[in-house]
Simulated scan of single mutants.
Amino acid sequence: MNAYKGKITFDKEQCVLCQTCAFVCPAGAINITCVEPQKSYDFIIWHNTCTVCGNCTYFCPTGAITLSNTLAEATPQSEKYTSITANIVEYGECPNCHEPMINVPLTMLKRSFKTISEPITSLFKLCPKCRRDHTFERRVL
């Protein structure tokens, strides 16, 4: 009989590269390395090292990492040494100044604001500097 353990899944569209998951992982199973500064990062979960403690899912601010409890999504114990989750997380571009930036996922906005409107979503498509400038112009001038 094969033993199964849960599986950590990763959604790169939700990731903001805060690296909290790698910091809180007691097993060191999550590795985030820079491929090209302010362009892209390798995001790797080593399932052979993962203890399925759930720290990464608990502390992830955007829900980019989830833990599956279903047998259909679990990794068989016999494959645990060859099973990894690998993605490239890429920076977006500010539509105003064209500087590289991490996009703010909608799930994070929903956790931060009671209601999500078009002005809020368009504001968070800007980089932090352009967002500050835009907000300052609206409030002061």
Rank of each mutant, 00 (worst) to 15 (best):
P76Y: 09
C53N: 03
T49L: 06
A22G: 02
D11K: 08
C34G: 10
Q19Y: 05
C56R: 08
E90F: 07
N31S: 07
Q19V: 13
A74F: 10
Q38Y: 11
C60Y: 07
N48I: 02
K39R: 14
F43P: 08
T66D: 13
A86D: 01
G28T: 12
V16Y: 08
I45E: 03
Q14A: 07
Y91T: 07
V89I: 14
F10W: 09
Y81T: 08
C18R: 02
A64C: 12
K7I: 01
I65C: 03
N69H: 08
T57N: 00
I102S: 05
A74Q: 07
H98T: 14
T49A: 09
I44R: 08
N31A: 04
Y91N: 00
V24C: 04
I84E: 08
T70E: 03
W46T: 04
Y41S: 05
T85S: 10
E79V: 10
M101A: 00
I65K: 02
E73F: 13
I84C: 01
Q19D: 12
I84M: 11
L106D: 12
E73S: 03
N48R: 10
A22K: 06
E13W: 01
V89L: 12
P95R: 10
P61M: 15
G6N: 03
F10M: 02
I32C: 02
A74N: 12
E73I: 06
K80V: 09
C21G: 08
Q38D: 15
C50E: 09
Y81D: 15
F43Q: 00
E93M: 07
P100V: 11
C94K: 08
I30H: 03
T75V: 15
I32T: 09
P95F: 04
V16D: 07
Q38L: 15
T85I: 14
T62R: 13
V35A: 01
N31P: 01
I88P: 03
W46E: 14
I88L: 07
G63M: 06
F10N: 02
M101C: 03
Y41I: 11
E90Y: 09
A22V: 04
S78Q: 14
P26V: 04
Y81Q: 09
P105G: 11
A64M: 05
T62C: 06
C94N: 14
C15L: 06
C60P: 02
I65M: 02
A29Y: 01
K7L: 01
N87T: 13
T85E: 03
G63R: 06
I32R: 04
K7A: 10
G92R: 02
T66W: 00
E90G: 06
A27G: 05
K7W: 07
C53T: 13
F10H: 10
